[in-house]
């Protein structure tokens, strides 16, 4: 198992993303993450401010290029605590830590964006 994980880690990131994309998303993962549900939350609910294609709205765009200067950890912190003084609420009351990490990683990689990314 650990050998498999280290082999996976050795894979180029894009391939890993591809694997994540083709893995059936309805199955809850080990952390109890319902990936289809979370993906829907990001696109539909986060999308009401950030745009369903994450190109922004009343809130800023969240495509990989837009998040270039932030680490996945920084993105996670922002989701967890929100941005005081803005419309961005803290999500820690609604999302678990693994869920927040899951979302931040996929925002950084762009894995949740559907359709052509130009």
């Amino acid at each position: 198992m650990s050998a498999l994980i280290s082999r996976l880690k050795a894979w180029p990131r894009r391939l890993l993303v591809l694997v994540l994309l083709i893995t059936p998303v309805t199955v809850a993962s080990e952390d109890g993450i319902d990936e289809a549900d979370l993906s829907n939350l990001v696109l539909q609910d986060c999308g009401s401010c950030h745009g369903m294609t994450l190109r922004g709205g009343l809130g800023p765009p969240l495509r990989p290029d837009d998040l270039e200067r932030m680490s996945a950890g920084a993105v996670a912190a922002l989701i967890r605590e929100g941005v005081p003084g803005t419309a961005m609420p803290p999500w820690k009351a609604l999302l678990s830590e693994p869920e927040i990490v899951w979302i931040s990683e996929r925002l950084k990689s762009g894995a949740l964006i559907k359709g052509p990314q130009e």
Partner: peptide, 12 residues
């Protein structure tokens, strides 16, 4: 809402 703790707004 003066003096009251505001709740997070998840949709405007």
């Amino acid at each position: 809402g003066k003096g009251e703790q505001k709740l997070p707004v998840y949709k405007m």
